[in-house]
Design a protein around this nucleic acid. Structure first.
Lengths: 237, 237
DNA sequence: GTAAGTATTATGTATGACATAAAGATATTT
DNA sequence: AAATATCTTTATGTCATACATAATACTTAC
C-alpha cells in the first residue's frame, strides 16, 4: 500500500513533557478541581509519590517548579500550602539584562513607555489631594535642571514611582520596578538610537499642574510629551 | 553594659536561601562573568557537583530552577546549554485565572487597558498603508452592531490583535495574548462592577478613520474613549 | 502550672544505582 | 566504497534509601 505523500497530517505540535512536567500539570489540575485556595494545605511529598506511583525525586522536582512560580510555599515539618501565585516572581528571576536578547530588551524599553502613557488615566482617576501635595514636594526638592536631556536618575525614579503608587495597582507597580533596571540598562547601552533632545518637553512640575487642574485627557497627552525624548529614540527606520 | 533599646539596628532583610537557591545564584554569576551567551554549553551536572562540593541532587534542583526560567535547556547526552530566557513563557505558567487572587485579576484587567491606551503611539508611529487596508477589511466583515455594550468577542480580538501586530513589538503582542483570557475571565466574572454603557463611544470604524487621517494624539485619545466602557467598570468607590 | 527537654514528622540534602536517548564508532550489507 | 545497521559511550532522567534539619507536639521535671 502506497501512502499518499500529499496528504501530510497537519503537524500537531508534539508535547514532549518530562515526567516532572506532567506531574506539575497534574497537580495544577488537582488544585483547580478541588477548589483549593490560598492557604490550603496540599498532600505531603511521600503521599503524592505513593499516589502517583512515581519516585519522590520526580514529585519534588515538580514541586520545585511550583514553588518557583510562587504557587506553593513549603516549610519544614509544617508541610506545603497553596499560595496565590506571583506572576512577576518568575519574571524577576530571569530579567537579567546581560542575558536577555537585545530585541527583547528593546521591546521591554518600549513596554515601559507604553505603561507610563497608558497608566495616566489610572493616576488621574485615583489621585487625591494629598498625592498632589506629595508630588509637589518631590518636585520642589529636585535639582532644577532646565535641560531636558540630562535628567537626574534618582529624581526620575522618585517622581514616576510616586505616579505608579497613585495608580494603585500593585501588579503594575511591581512590574515597573522590574522593568526599571532593564530600562536603565537599555537607555545607557548602545542598543537604541542616540539621545535626542525633544522640542516638546513637559517638566515634572508641568505634569503635576496638569494633573491637579487639567482634564484626564490633558494629563494623558502631557505624559506622552513628557516622555517624548524617550519615544524619539525608538523610532524605527 | 546596657544596650540602648531605642537604637534598633535597621532591619536588614534576612536572605535565607536554601542550598539550591545559592547554587542557582552562583551559576548565574558564573554565566554573566564568563560572558556566556545563548547556545554556549555549561558544565555537566557531575562536574558541577564535584566543583561546588555538593550533591548532584542539589545541583539538579538548581538546574531545574534555571530550566524553568528558560535560562538553560538540556538534552540527553548533549548536555546543557544556555538559552535566552523567555520572559512571557514564565508569565504564562502562573497565569491560571482560577488560582490567581481576585485582586491580582483586577490588576491585570486594568493592566490590559493601560497597555491598549499606551500602545496607541506605537501603532500610530508604525502604521503603514496596508495596515489601514487590513483594518478596514476587518471592520467591514464585522457584525454591525451599533450597541456599544454587547460586543462580539471574536471581532474584538481580531481588531485589537491587529493593532498589537501593527505596534510591532513581539513582547507586547505576546503579553496581550496572555492577558486576553484573564481579561475575558474577569470581564465575565462578578469581580468588577456591572457593565455600564458609556456615552462617549468610538467604534472600530471610527478608530481606523482617526488612525488614518488624524494625529497621534487624536488616535491616543480615541483609543481611550473606545475603551471607556471597560474603564467605567474599574472605578473605585 | 510553667519551663525545659524529648519525640515526632515533613521537608531538605546526600549517595549510589540504573534507565534512557542521542552521538559517535564500528560492523554489516549492497 | 557508500549506505545502513548495530554497538558503545556519555550525560541527563528516574528511582530507592538513608540521614539531616527545623518546627511542632508531647512529656517530664520542678
Amino acid at each position: 500500500m502506497q501512502q499518499k505523500k500529499t496528504a501530510i497530517s497537519p503537524l500537531k505540535k508534539i508535547e514532549k513533557h518530562s515526567l516532572p512536567e506532567l506531574i506539575e500539570k497534574n497537580l495544577l489540575e488537582y488544585f483547580v478541581e478541588n477548589r483549593l485556595t490560598a492557604g490550603d494545605p496540599i498532600p505531603k511529598e511521600t503521599d503524592l509519590a505513593k499516589t502517583l506511583n512515581v519516585s519522590r525525586t520526580a514529585i519534588r522536582e515538580a514541586l520545585v517548579r511550583l514553588k518557583m512560580t510562587g504557587m506553593i510555599i513549603s516549610k519544614k515539618k509544617q508541610g506545603m500550602v497553596l499560595a496565590s501565585p506571583d506572576l512577576l516572581a518568575l519574571f524577576e528571576k530571569s530579567s537579567n539584562p546581560r542575558i536577555l536578547a537585545n530585541d527583547t530588551l528593546k521591546d521591554l524599553f518600549e513596554l515601559r513607555l507604553v505603561l507610563e502613557v497608558g497608566m495616566a488615566d489610572l493616576v488621574y482617576e485615583r489621585k487625591k489631594p494629598e498625592h498632589i501635595k506629595e508630588l509637589k514636594e518631590i518636585v520642589r526638592k529636585q535639582k532644577t535642571t532646565s535641560d531636558a536631556a540630562t535628567f537626574n536618575i534618582d529624581d526620575e525614579v522618585k517622581f514616576h514611582g510616586k505616579l505608579y503608587e497613585i495608580a494603585d495597582n500593585k501588579t503594575l507597580d511591581r512590574f515597573q520596578h522590574l522593568l526599571l533596571p532593564l530600562f536603565q540598562y537599555v537607555h545607557e547601552s548602545g542598543i537604541l538610537q542616540k539621545k535626542i533632545r525633544s522640542r516638546q518637553y513637559i517638566s515634572h512640575k508641568g505634569l503635576v499642574d496638569i494633573l491637579e487642574k487639567g482634564t484626564a485627557e490633558e494629563f494623558r497627552n502631557a505624559m506622552r510629551k513628557h516622555l517624548d525624548n524617550h519615544f524619539c529614540r525608538i523610532r524605527t527606520s
